[in-house]
């Protein structure tokens, strides 16, 4: 089985390398991409889509189909991570740890002992070491809102400046990861649960694909946003700009949820308790 996989892998790799030999040279000015495609994008992207940032126009409009599958690849990464790592039945540990919230004292209760689960003054923690540091918490509390606002800015402002759904989604996910690092994973999961993450992830892809299907429903090509002009009440050029924004929001949601889910599963080896 392993040997067969290796042979198959080698054959595919050789085929890929053979295909690459047929490519035009890197930066070749007479290649079709440089002689036809790039000049078209450079000359027409602003008049076609009303998006000043050419990269965003190419990414989400001219090559929207490609970007949709990039989003699906990220979605698949999250699914694979869940299937490979998530363990739903953690091995029962011999003791439980609780922290008295007011004083920060940690209690270790052996199996069979009386646990303060229903008390408001204790919270359950997982490992011996849970970061409990005032400086780090205060800084994170102060910085995280700015990170999130900046992430939303990056998503929404991808038309005019470097940015877009992927970058903004990663920043948004990083803010949640930062929260999980400086507080604890159990609390983060209480705020943004696993189901919510999976839902957001699927919803992001659905928004992207749904926009394309909506365009088909309005008697146009898949992901041809100019068909949405009637819905937005604008001209077709502006509708393409708005369509890019909707798609970017979908990408941002999916990427954010995937980042958070990858962190949950990797940091705790799939047990969703305090790892690291």
């Amino acid at each position: 089985m392993k040997r067969g996989g290796l042979v198959l892998f080698s054959i595919m790799g050789l085929l890929l390398a053979w295909g690459v030999l047929e490519f035009p040279g890197l930066g070749d000015p007479s290649s079709p991409a440089s002689s036809h495609l790039s000049p078209y994008y450079i000359q027409h992207s602003l008049t076609d889509t009303a998006v000043p940032n050419m990269v965003t126009a190419v990414l989400a409009d001219y090559r929207g189909y490609d970007t949709m599958f990039e989003t699906i690849v990220i979605f698949t990464a999250a699914i694979v991570c869940i299937f490979l790592l998530r363990t739903f039945k953690p091995p029962a540990s011999r003791y439980r740890m609780y922290r008295h919230m007011a004083t920060g004292i940690t209690l270790r209760i052996e199996k069979g002992g009386k646990t303060p689960d229903d008390s408001e003054h204790f919270e359950r923690i997982d490992s011996v070491w849970v970061p409990h540091d005032l400086v780090i918490r205060t800084t994170c509390r102060m910085v995280i809102p700015f990170i999130q606002v900046f992430a939303l800015y990056v998503i929404a402002h991808g038309h005019h400046s470097p940015g877009g759904g992927f970058q903004g989604g990663v920043i948004l996910g990083a803010s949640v990861v930062l929260f999980a690092v400086c507080f604890d994973l159990r609390r983060t999961i209480r705020y943004l649960g696993e189901k919510m993450c999976a839902l957001l992830c699927a919803l992001g892809v659905l928004i992207y694909a749904g926009t394309g299907i909506l365009c088909m429903g309005l008697q146009s090509n898949f992901l041809d946003y100019s068909a949405l002009a009637g819905l937005f009440g604008t001209d077709p050029v502006m509708a393409r700009s708005h369509g890019i924004l909707i798609v970017e929001i979908g990408v941002g949601m999916a990427v954010m949820a995937v980042m958070v889910m990858l962190y949950y599963n990797l940091a705790s080896a799939g047990r969703h308790d305090e790892g690291l």
Binding site: W129, P131, D133, V135, I136, T139, M142, V143, F146, C182
Partner: peptide
């Protein structure tokens, strides 16, 4: 402003992790 706040905090947490 943000670097001035976050960079020392990062170092603080690394030192903290080392001590712990």
């Amino acid at each position: 402003f943000f670097v001035f706040i976050t960079s020392p905090t990062a170092i603080h947490s690394i030192v903290d992790a080392g001590v712990r």
